[in-house]
Nucleic acid binder design. Structure first.
Length: 297
DNA sequence: GCGACAG
DNA sequence: ATCTTGTCGC
């Protein structure tokens, strides 16, 4: 896929004010309403993808992303591979991309896994040097570039992008999911493991599986959206029966999805683990790449 | 000035 | 994000 709005690609070398300015422009282009070509029910998963047997084509194994995953090191963005897409079913369920990152010293590994229903139909990755350190509110300028590079190698257009990080739950409503979603003008949702900003309607501790509560802009919250706006949801994707101790997920719209739909999509994509399958698999993929990269270098 | 803050 | 053993439970 190609960036539809290259002017918003997070390039290195910007100072803080320029990054903030870019985020404000980006937010104006973001759509926090449903503009999807499918419904959450169409991406519903019942069981974890990795526990299934050989898929339709029979040669993908999630335990080792073994098909076409050789690493090629060249240039600043050192590697990417957008191959292995022969298995996409044109008439099948929506294609969902999960995106995550891992780090080794001063290198960032961006990993993308493509899911169509319960089939892994492709993956891609990019290795690069993070332009800036982690700064709350500026994550897209640290991880966004390599992610765009990896996504750009995809031979098919995903119907949905799922990120590990916030979307609209962000000081300027311009989290990683929103930023990259707008760059590709692709429906996107953000899935964070902790809350960046905003206020839950109710306390989130010890909630049962399936529970959720809105995240709103409170009077004391430093968020550009009007007070009272629902910018996301706390969603309990998994919980233990006995002593509840799993924290909820913080789901928010990235682009072209409402907060409610973002929550429903994440619920439909969850299959027994805390993280929804796309993000969980991307996380595993990133770890695997990290291991291979640690040796070779 | 102090605090709080995705990954 | 990353550094990491054992441990409780299905």
């Amino acid at each position: 896929m190609k960036p539809v709005r290259p002017q918003f690609v997070p390039e290195p070398g910007l100072d803080r004010e320029e990054m903030l300015a870019l985020q404000r422009e980006l937010t104006a282009a973001a759509v926090f309403e449903d503009d999807l070509s499918f419904s959450p029910a169409e991406v519903a998963l019942v069981e974890p993808v990795q526990s299934r047997g050989p898929n339709r084509s029979g040669d993908h194994t999630l335990a080792s992303f073994s098909k076409g995953d050789s690493l090629t090191l060249e240039g600043d963005t050192l590697a990417s591979n957008g191959d292995a897409f022969a298995d996409v079913d044109p008439g099948g369920p929506p294609v969902v991309a999960g995106v995550d990152q891992a780090f080794i010293d001063d290198r960032a590994i961006s990993a993308v896994v493509l899911l169509q229903g319960r089939d892994v139909v492709g993956w891609a990755h990019a290795v690069s040097e993070p332009p800036i350190p982690y700064v709350p509110g500026l994550l897209a300028f640290r991880e966004g570039g390599p992610i765009v590079d990896a996504l750009a190698t995809l031979a098919v257009e995903p119907d949905l992008l799922v990120f590990d990080g916030s979307g609209r739950i962000h000081f300027r409503e311009a989290g990683l999911a929103t930023h990259v979603g707008v760059v590709f003008d692709c429906p996107a949702v953000g899935v964070a493991k902790s809350l960046l900003c905003g206020t839950p309607d109710e306390p989130t501790d010890g909630r049962p599986e399936g529970w959720s509560t809105p995240i709103r802009v409170g009077a004391d919250d430093d968020v550009t959206a009007p007070e009272g706006t629902v910018i996301g949801y706390a969603y309990q994707s998994r919980q233990y029966d006995g002593e509840p101790r799993i924290n909820p997920l913080y789901v928010s719209p990235g682009h072209r999805a409402s907060a409610e739909t973002a929550r429903e999509l994440v619920a439909a994509l969850s299959a027994g683990y805390k993280l929804p399958e796309p993000t969980r698999l991307a996380d595993r993929f990133a770890d695997e790449l990290k291991g291979k990269l640690a040796n070779d270098t």
